[in-house]
């Protein structure tokens, strides 16, 4: 059976919530406004208006974030399987871990870069990181690192990652490797979870991994990085194999594209490369891949009830936040209409 009866209630709710997702017309209208004030006024017609505090345009980022947080909170509260949201939210936990580790290394203030969306309180992560790094070495004096009246314990997967990060830094001191390790940890966690729990999410993830791999290759090549470096960032699990991409690494973009034409990503690669030749950046290909990812999510429509609509709702919500943010940033920086438009492709032609 395709349908998972445990999700009946949650699906019913999500079907109703889907209506509040920002539609193409709204994004288009925002895009066609003359300035950020007007774009913001359009945004105030969407579900995000509920999070406005009256501060005006400057408030948009917080509103988007609040909307996304609320979406995750809601889905978590109705999903019979809590790991469904947790696994997606790990991305934000890992982002915070990265920021905390980097900040410690550079000794800079990091608070403003923290995203308050993870499952684990960033302060807890920070305190735990410092405790694990220093506390055990020097003894009890360092417990002053703990915020007053706090209680710290980390989920096992995070405890393990922090430990590995600490070892890596002790051994090589290379933050870049830690970065990679965290990146891959997210993909690995998601892959393991979705293989077990959701073929639907797995299908999405495969495309996502391919997108990261293909664009990673093109970017690194353009930056003149060595093949070995690229090999390190390659993520297993995509449809386009490592050997295939590696064989294309030294070719020109055109030749590489020709080599990838017979993959299922023909549309993204051809369209993206054409634009890449014209203006030398991959943002269009990225948008095409985003569109592709949203397309993969569509299979959810034929599901009466199951985890698929919940996942699709969250992933669409994320895409929506990215799109709205892009418009607002574009408007705030006075980017020309067609540049924003191009980057919004995923949203505008689904």
């Amino acid at each position: 059976m395709y349908n998972d009866i445990r999700y009946a209630y949650a699906t019913g709710r999500i079907r109703s919530l889907q209506k509040d997702l920002v539609d193409e017309t709204t994004v288009r209208r925002m895009l066609e406004t003359p300035d950020e004030e007007a774009a913001f006024a359009v945004m105030m017609e969407t579900s995000y208006a509920a999070y406005a505090t009256g501060a005006g345009v400057s408030d948009y980022e917080r509103m988007l974030e609040a909307g996304l947080i609320e979406a995750y909170r809601l889905v978590r509260s109705i999903s019979p399987d809590g790991t469904l949201t947790d696994i997606l939210l790990r991305r934000y936990d890992l982002h915070n871990v990265r920021i905390i580790i980097k900040a410690e290394h550079i000794g800079a203030d990091y608070k403003h870069l923290i995203v308050p969306m993870g499952r684990v309180d960033p302060d807890t992560i920070a305190a735990a990181w410092h405790l694990r790094r220093e506390g055990w070495e020097e003894g009890s004096e360092s417990s002053h690192i703990l915020p007053p009246a706090s209680q710290i314990s980390l989920p096992r997967w995070l405890e393990r990652l922090l430990y590995r990060a600490a070892l890596m830094i002790d051994n090589s001191g290379d933050l870049y490797l830690v970065d990679l390790m965290l990146d891959k940890a997210w993909f690995r966690g998601l892959k393991a979870w979705s293989k077990e729990n959701s073929h639907y999410l797995y299908a999405w993830l495969v495309v996502r991994i391919d997108a990261v791999n293909i664009m990673g290759m093109l970017r690194l090549r353009a930056g003149g990085w060595s093949r070995e470096r690229w090999r390190e960032i390659f993520i297993e699990g995509g449809r386009v194999s490592r050997s295939k991409l590696e064989s294309l690494y030294d070719l020109t973009p055109e030749q590489a594209a020709a080599g990838l034409i017979d993959t299922v990503y023909r549309r993204e690669i051809e369209g993206g490369l054409e634009d890449y030749r014209k203006c030398g950046e991959l943002s269009y290909m990225e948008a095409l891949f985003e569109a592709r990812l949203l397309e993969v999510l569509r299979a959810e429509r034929y599901i009466t009830f199951g985890s698929q609509p919940l996942l699709a709702y969250l992933l669409r919500k994320e895409a929506e936040v990215r799109a709205l943010r892009m418009v607002m940033i574009g408007k705030l920086n006075g980017l020309p209409h067609d540049i924003i438009h191009k980057r919004l492709r995923a949203f505008l032609y689904r």
């Binding site: 405790l131 694990r132 070495e137 703990l146 007053p148 209680q151 980390l154 096992r156 405890e159 393990r160």
Partner: peptide, 24 residues
């Protein structure tokens, strides 16, 4: 304290660790 190896062994077994601020 100096026994880093013991710590590594514990970490191999998927532990959860707790810490509390002084005065708890």
């Amino acid at each position: 304290s100096a026994d880093k190896e013991a710590l590594a062994i514990i970490h191999k077994h998927d532990p959860v660790l707790w810490s509390f601020s002084p005065g708890t």
